[in-house]
Every structure is written in C-alpha cells, then in structure tokens.
C-alpha cells in the first residue's frame, strides 16, 4: 500500500524538485536548489492571468453546475421515477463519449455557424462542463438519497402540516450534504484540470492554467516545473478549502 502510494506521489515530487533545482541533468537528484524560477513565474503577468481565469471557470462551474443539477436530481428521485431512469442513462454518456468528441461538437455548434458564439468565452467551458460533471453529483447524492426512508419522511412531514419545500429544506437537503461535498470537490478538479475543452474551444482567447502550461512546455524545463508545482498547489489549496467550507456547514 505504502509502495503504491509512493509511486503515485513520485511524479508530483519530481516536478516540485525540478522546479526548485539549480541544475539537474545526468544525476539522480538535483545538484542544488533555488527559488529563482518560482519568483520568475510569479513575476510573469501571464501566470497571474491564467490563475485568475482558471479559478473563475472552476468557481463558475461549481456554482452553475450544482444549481442546475442538484434540484433536478432531487425532484427526479422524489417525484419522477421515469425521469430518474433517464438521468441515470444520460449520466453515463460522458464515459462512452470522450471529451474530445463532445468538444468537436461544441466547436461546430457555437462558433457562430448557427448564430450563437460561445467559443472563445469562459461560458462555453462553464456550461460545457455540466454534462461531464453531472455524474460526479448524481452518483454520491443518489447514494445518500437511497439511504433515507423518503416516503415515510414525506408522509410524517405532511401529517404535521409541513410543506414539501420545508421537508426538502429541513430534512432531505441536509441528508445529501456528504454527497454534495464529494460532488463539489470532484467538479472543481475536473474544471481546473481540463485541457481538451480549454484548448479547442477557448485557447488563447481565455488562457487557463492548463493552456499556459501547454504554451510554456516548449521552453525552459525549470520554469514549467515551477509552473506545474504552483498549479498543484492551487488545486490542493482549493480542494482543501472546498472540503473545509462544506464540512463546516454540515457540522453547524
């Protein structure tokens, strides 16, 4: 177990080491260490812009996707079993349809050929990620919903005069919180680490971190290592914040 974990962490550690190395060629470990490349990176306005763009898309995706998906999952589970079955099928589609195929379709549809131009703007990413992220909410939330005796809860709630909305807010929604947290975290990593959509649909018009990494990849190995290390730091910090913020909400 420990060995497997070490192997999984190794590539990330190697990139981080390389980002701080003075010279690293022909030896197993770097010769010396420096923060020169890190400071060079932080002084680069393109880096700051890319971090801003990536966070904007990722946070935008979290807000939009959860607002659109969670109510639909709830009402389908509670009231519309046929819709629920359809959602179960729709949600598996991204596995069968690779993101490059969907990106091709979006490229054809929203480049202005049909009067709508979304490509080149962050909107195509924020909305384009919804079908990909829907299953990340659907699966864990459904697990939470299956675990509660929904029919009994609604019967008892209505008996004491509570509206369905009140039952949802006071009982159903709190019980799906753990699933929602998992969904939010996974949605965030999906949005911040996407390259395929970002590269084909917005590219240089709205450079995200992944695009910037691609741009730098031809140049200095040290600088790109520093960049990837910084990218990882962003992902880790943001993931921790999402987990922390949402688990605090559950506790209160």
């Amino acid at each position: 177990m420990g060995l497997v974990f070490a192997v999984q962490v190794l590539p990330i550690a190697a990139v981080a080491l390389n980002g701080f190395a003075t010279e690293w060629a022909g030896s197993v470990l770097p010769v010396g260490y420096t923060t020169q490349y890190m400071s060079q990176l932080f002084a680069d306005p393109r880096f700051t812009q890319a971090v801003g763009n990536s966070l904007l898309v990722a946070v935008g995706s979290l807000v939009v996707t959860s607002t659109i998906c969670v109510p639909a999952i709830l009402v389908a589970h509670c009231y519309f079993p046929i819709l629920d079955r359809w959602m179960g099928a729709l949600i598996i589609l991204p596995y069968a349809v690779p993101s490059i195929v969907l990106a091709l379709g979006l490229l054809r549809l929203y480049s202005g050929n049909y009067g709508v131009v979304l490509n080149g703007t962050p909107w195509v990413l924020i909305f384009g990620y919804i079908p990909l992220a829907a299953s990340l909410y659907y699966v864990p939330i459904k697990n939470n919903l299956r675990a509660i005796a929904l029919t009994e809860i609604f019967e008892a709630g209505r008996l004491v005069g509570a509206s369905d909305l009140a039952i949802m807010r006071r009982i159903v929604i709190p019980s799906i919180m753990p699933g929602l947290v998992v969904g939010l975290v996974m949605n965030f990593t999906l949005a911040i680490s996407d390259f395929v959509y970002a590269n084909l649909l917005v590219g240089g018009h709205f450079p995200t971190l992944q695009i910037f990494i691609g741009v730098l990849s031809g140049g200095s190995g040290r600088l790109i290592s520093a960049l990837i290390t910084a990218y990882f730091a962003v992902v880790l910090i943001a993931t921790s914040i999402v987990i922390w913020a949402t688990s605090r909400k559950i506790a209160s």
Partner: peptide, 11 residues
C-alpha cells in the same frame, strides 16, 4: 495532459 507527461519525462 502536460503536467503528467512532463513529470514522467523528468523521471
């Protein structure tokens, strides 16, 4: 993508 490919090139 690029981060993973780059990490493996280093290793």
């Amino acid at each position: 993508g690029y981060p993973l490919a780059f990490a493996f090139v280093i290793l």
